[in-house]
Design a protein around this nucleic acid. Sequence first.
DNA 1: GTGGTCTAGACCACC
DNA 2: GTGGTCTAGACCACA
Lengths: 131, 131, 131, 131
Amino acid sequence: MFITLDLESEEPIYTQLMHQIIEGIAKKELKPGEALPSVRSLAADLGINLHTVNKAYQQLKQEGFILIHRQKGVVINPDGVAKADETYWPQLAAKLRPLIAEAICREVSMNDFLQACQEIYSEFNPRSEPK
Amino acid sequence: MFITLDLESEEPIYTQLMHQIIEGIAKKELKPGEALPSVRSLAADLGINLHTVNKAYQQLKQEGFILIHRQKGVVINPDGVAKADETYWPQLAAKLRPLIAEAICREVSMNDFLQACQEIYSEFNPRSEPK
Amino acid sequence: MFITLDLESEEPIYTQLMHQIIEGIAKKELKPGEALPSVRSLAADLGINLHTVNKAYQQLKQEGFILIHRQKGVVINPDGVAKADETYWPQLAAKLRPLIAEAICREVSMNDFLQACQEIYSEFNPRSEPK
Amino acid sequence: MFITLDLESEEPIYTQLMHQIIEGIAKKELKPGEALPSVRSLAADLGINLHTVNKAYQQLKQEGFILIHRQKGVVINPDGVAKADETYWPQLAAKLRPLIAEAICREVSMNDFLQACQEIYSEFNPRSEPK
DNA sequence: GTGGTCTAGACCACC
DNA sequence: GTGGTCTAGACCACA
């Protein structure tokens, strides 16, 4: 599991970190119960501030992706993530709407848009997980 | 064309404004060449500062959605927005990837995700307008 | 002599007008002593405000390009324009310096830059003035 | 690297700032990757408002001269500036044309004009560095 | 009337 | 500490 950050991006570093970890879970590179590096070691590895890693971890914990034990350290939530519930869909829609609106302005057809989604979705589910 | 802002939201006001205007264009409520309110009047209408409106307008101008016309004031780009080009797709993918990764973690099937996109897309094309 | 304005340009309309007239003089399309349209008729032709044309004319007059007679109307300065004097060169340098600095940043060689100047200069002096 | 502003000038302060920084890069006084002062400290040094400095920085960022780095603050683009591309030359010509037209009206010969450019260009390349 | 510029001062997110 | 956002109020250039 490699993490790559773009320190020049508009996106805050802590959200980049969150996204990378979530993507790792989606790709099954990080499995439920698996341990994550400690705040200190990850910060050192990435050359970023302790607080930044901590903020990402805290937020991931709050959203149910990871557990933070005083002793065992940080682990991927062994029970899996909370499934999509009634609060999830409107949040997703709120994030998708601006993207879709812009796509329509740029004359992207619905099919092209869906296909783009489909391709990205497939990146996370390599059919037979060939290494 | 109504604009609704959530002043409590995390999302900056000026991006909310941008999104609303882009959605207006996508919905064809705002047509190419159509005039937008002046910074001052829109700011007054919305009860926000004119600089905030200005920032949204400047950014929309830079992205090609509107023109700032010496005489006519602000108008929707009469030539339509620049179509999706080679730089657009990677940007879209970068924004979609975290959403899709989270969806997968939450065990949303590809079909459910695509259907959500489809529904939102359809909101913008109310009249049949199939294909 | 045709005048083309870009109402969407960053450049103020009155300076565009000034530049076009100066270019007309440089190209010898407008000859010393030749009459220019009245403020009113030019404004009407171009579909712009009286004041805008007037401002351009006033400024051209102040810089010695044209004369404004109450009765004869507006004419190109029959004595030709004031030649380059000691105040001209520093002004030119001040306008050129930012352009040249940017060119250097963009790795434009001196020769390429001079050649660009040369080509533009030549546009104004068609060798044998054909036609 | 000294910056001198003329607060009385017609030229907006933020463009003066931009030009000075671009000239600094052209003169190699500011090297790729080098840090620039923070908005606040530069504003304090120059006795102007931080928003004015910020506007200059934002515009320089947008044109690719600098990067705004989450950790390091503002730095000169370490990759150098985008080289002259096909969109650059027409822009340069548009800015040069009025200057050259006026020069011709003032009976400046092509050689005199080119020599003026050459001298300014040389200001930025003090060490021999021929060709 | 418009947008463009500049100032001053505030709060917040990020690091 | 940094930059990002927002507010308020001022003046000016342009049309």
